[in-house]
Design a protein around this nucleic acid. Structure first.
Length: 569
DNA sequence: ATTAGATGTCATTAT
DNA sequence: GCATAATGACATCTA
């Protein structure tokens, strides 16, 4: 240690921080880590207990591997149960306390066994609440629902009020994220049995599973207050001309459903009420791509103008991130990002034009099968189609936060999924990768095989151009970096060479000096031995020794030498 | 809030 | 003349 101190004092770089040698500091760090570890273990234990409580109310379906609520035998009137739920919840909220998780589970597990519309619909709607709601939200929701919502809940025939109710729901600050996504409101004409939709305001924005996975302290009292404060006064104007985008809504809702946490069956929306839908069984994997909505759905591209997007981060405030199922006007055949944003807002024009519907034999499966950038995994499909899954809470037993994964999604992947979305939106039957990487001839052949309209051709060419340019840019940068590295290497080489040459020069100089010295000594030695006719030595000021080319040496008077030089001039 | 680096895109030029 | 590659410049995103 003393040596190290001495070295430090002498400013000697050891290549490591001093703390490496500092025992006390290391000990401190160790204690801190220990403390953190203990906290972590404690949290994990809590989480496990919560999971345990959850699974106590769920039953494993051996066929599907899903957990479904346990069916209790003693039947109670749904209304009574609902009332009891309300009462118990109200009692809790009146006390200003948050519900304990187990109590919520018990209440909801008891509640779910009845197939009343009020009970089934919330199950389907639960994911919506996952985005922004909390336990506090549940309690406040029940006590502070605006009148219009209550009216909408009771007046089952009033479509206008239903729309208003949706608008107001979306006006809730805590639901703005949802509002950003669902930029169009429910067009009840899509639902022959609108009665089911009338249940929406009665929807209890509470998810017991959510509370397992998302501790209440995250969004607790503050959230509640915000909601209470903002709701009554904040009923902004919403575009009532907007229509509900079934596909987007489906993606938004169902991508948020944790397949393991619910057995809510959903199949098709067209011509069926939500209530009916919820009572039918459905393979949960269908929800991943929402095939039921993608296929033969007249509202497939029914994006509205307020930015709803299946590919939009729900809480994103950046317009640059807004995208989705863009349909472009015929007048625009360039699809720069900026234009995409503009065009997203003009999709209604396209929908009004029936000639814009293309029917290319193409399914999602083939689409994704063709794309090397989209793993053939349903879960990923959900993710690529709907980044709102980012908002999913951690599943029971799943330690990794979904946010960590989202961060790891590379920009390139995001870009490709964006183009994939565009390609899909225009029903182009091959993948972005194919469009970009196919050789010219193959690409031409491929293009000639299909009858594309101008919009499709423009999109394909744009994607190919950008894709090629992207690769070119990457290569260019790579080359540039390689050149820089090469030049740096050359520079180092030249520096080394210069040093070598300088060293050589020094050696030569010193040897030259030595030779000159020796020559001078020899010269003086020879000169001092020369004698004239009188036996006297010659004066070095008057005479000098000169050597001719043939090797002979002459004693030359310096004056004469000057004369000779003058003569030469 | 700032900033550097990475990346995508566009415009232009070269091949 | 066209398609493609190369590259500088700019915008945007991210750590």
């Amino acid at each position: 240690m003393d040596l190290i101190d001495i070295l430090w004092k002498q400013d000697i770089d050891l290549g490591v921080g001093r703390e490496v040698f500092d025992y006390r500091q290391k000990q401190k760090e160790y204690e801190l880590e220990k403390q953190k570890k203990l906290e972590k273990e404690h949290q994990e234990q809590l989480l496990k207990e919560q999971e345990k409580a959850l699974y106590a109310h769920l039953q494993l379906d051996e066929e599907t591997g899903e957990f479904i609520p346990v069916q209790h035998s003693p039947p109670i009137e749904a209304a009574v149960v609902a009332q009891s739920v309300t009462n118990s919840l109200q009692g809790k909220s009146d006390l200003g306390q948050e519900l304990f998780f187990d109590e919520c589970l018990e209440i909801l597990a008891d509640t779910f066994q009845f197939e009343t519309p009020e009970m089934t619909f919330p199950t389907a709607m639960v994911p919506v609440s996952e985005m922004n709601t909390s336990q506090s939200f549940l309690t406040t929701e029940q006590h502070h629902l605006p009148d219009s919502l209550q009216n909408a809940a009771t007046n089952t025939g009033n479509v206008q009020e239903m729309e208003q109710a949706w608008q107001e729901l979306l006006s809730i600050p805590e639901l703005q994220c949802l509002g950003n996504q669902i930029d169009s409101l429910v067009d009840l004409s899509l639902y022959p049995n609108s009665e089911a939709m009338m249940e929406t305001p009665n929807y209890v924005f509470h998810d017991p599973l959510l509370n397992i996975e998302k501790p209440a302290e995250d969004t607790g009292p503050v959230f509640s207050n915000d909601f209470v404060d903002s709701f009554p006064a904040n009923v902004p104007t919403v575009n009532t001309n907007s229509t509900f985008n079934v596909e987007t809504f489906c993606d938004d809702i169902f991508s948020l459903i944790d397949p393991k946490a619910t057995n809510v069956p959903l199949t098709d929306n067209s011509g069926q009420s939500f209530t009916g839908l919820l009572n039918e069984s459905l393979d949960i994997t269908d929800l991943s791509l929402c095939k039921a909505f993608n296929e033969n759905s007249p509202t497939e591209f029914n994006d509205s103008d307020s930015g709803i997007s299946i590919n939009t981060s729900p809480c994103s405030t950046s317009p640059g991130q807004s995208m989705g199922s863009p349909i472009y006007e015929d007048a625009h055949y360039s699809y720069s990002d900026a234009e995409m944003e503009d065009m997203d807002s003009t999709t209604e024009n396209v929908h009004q034009n029936p000639t814009e519907k293309f029917h290319v034999p193409f399914t999602d499966d083939t689409f994704y099968a063709l794309s090397p950038f989209v793993p053939h995994d349903t879960s990923f499909d959900i993710e690529t189609q709907n980044p709102t899954e980012k908002e999913l809470p951690v599943r029971p037993g799943q330690s990794k936060s979904p946010f960590t994964k989202d961060k790891s999604i590379s920009r390139q992947e995001a870009r490709f999924s964006r183009d994939e979305q565009r390609v899909k939106a225009l029903k182009v039957p091959f993948s972005v990768d194919k469009i970009v990487n196919l050789p010219v001839d193959d690409f031409t052949v491929l293009m000639s095989k299909h009858q594309f309209n101008e919009a499709q051709v423009a999109l394909i060419r744009d994607i190919r151009r950008r894709g090629k340019n992207k690769v070119a840019a990457q290569n260019c940068r790579k080359r540039k970096m390689e050149n820089i590295v090469e030049l740096e290497s050359d520079l180092d080489k030249l520096k080394y060479e210069k040093e070598q040459l300088l060293a050589e020069k020094g050696e030569y100089n010193s040897s030259l000096r030595l030779l000159k010295k020796q020559l001078g000594t020899l010269y003086m030695d020879v000169f001092s031995k020369l004698r004239d006719e009188d036996g006297k030595p010659y004066s070095p000021q008057e005479y000098s020794l000169q050597q001719t080319k043939d090797g002979n040496v002459f004693l030359v008077p310096k004056a004469k030498k000057i004369e000779i030089k003058k003569e030469q001039i």
